[in-house]
Nucleic acid binder design. Structure first.
Lengths: 152, 152
DNA sequence: GACTAACGTTCGTCGCACTAACGAAGCTAT
DNA sequence: ATAGCTTCGTTAGTGCGACGAACGTTAGTC
């Protein structure tokens, strides 16, 4: 191999916040993605189920706004969840443009399962940090993304 | 705006570290991506130029390892940088499989320019955080991604 | 001299964020 | 009432970043 030049200065790349964020996010994505894939789920499935359970039944576009998924992509997610029997999609009698999405009993069980799995994966993800640091990281990220308003 | 439904329970989604990381990273990506695009650059160009300047000339695969870009994708990046005259790609006489990539004077100027731009963008990115918090965030991210070894 | 491995390169895949457009349905105003 | 705007679900498609497969070329190894 070529002479590894002595790198006296730790490069700026390693300290670049945007880069660190990207790196951390990539790891997280992979960890969570793989973990969920192992049980045949994707993060959107979890997001939708959780949103449904917490906010109650909603139309697809409301789900989109609440969960952050584009309504274009919501279709496929709901198709899958409906096929698996985790949600029900019924036309809204009050507004015939809308579908009302409801979580089923099976969906609740699925969500509970995924919740446990997710909790474990988050632990793995944050393993290098101690308890206080984990809290700090979450706080900082919330502040950074403008989500620090609602208390946890 | 739509009636914000009373959400009595702060949902788990908002506090999920992996999700916050993804959100923050997306914002960062966009901010930096747009900022760099405004001057016709991409983050990989910066990464490669910075790596070259800090570690000196190297083969493409070494650049890949050092900067984190896949060697498949390195080709296009170097094509562009070479076309713009920011790097030189010459065959390595010592190993004819390799190319030696060298940063040019023009590349150095470009890098300096991008450095200034990047510094500004990072400031924008971290605007919601105070000085101490920025340091903490970087520290936590480095620890999280296993890059806390080399001091900054 | 045959095997193996690394290098640069091309091509293709996968997932994600996002846009455009469209028919169906609701809302509003004149 | 009807014309015009908006919203909803849906389809299709774009762009990009991360990643894998394979190939010809070249080095090193037995």
């Amino acid at each position: 191999m070529a002479a590894d030049s002595p790198h006296p200065r730790p490069d700026r790349l390693r300290a670049l916040p945007s880069r660190l964020l990207g790196l951390a996010s990539m790891r997280a994505d992979r960890l969570i993605g793989d973990g969920l894939a192992a049980v045949g789920a994707r993060k959107w499935h979890y997001a939708v189920l959780a949103t449904l359970q917490e906010y109650g039944p909603a139309s697809q576009s409301e789900l989109s706004r609440r969960s952050g998924i584009y309504r274009s992509d919501m279709v496929a997610v709901l198709n899958l969840l409906a096929d698996e029997g985790h949600v029900e999609r019924t036309p809204d009698p009050a507004d015939r443009r809308r579908n009302v999405i409801t979580i089923t009993e099976s969906g609740r069980r699925r969500l509970a399962h995924l919740d446990a799995l997710l909790a474990d994966l988050q632990k793995q993800l944050l393993a290098p940090l101690d308890e206080h640091e984990r809290g700090e990281l979450v706080r900082l990220l919330r502040k950074l993304t403008g989500r620090e308003d609602e208390e946890m």
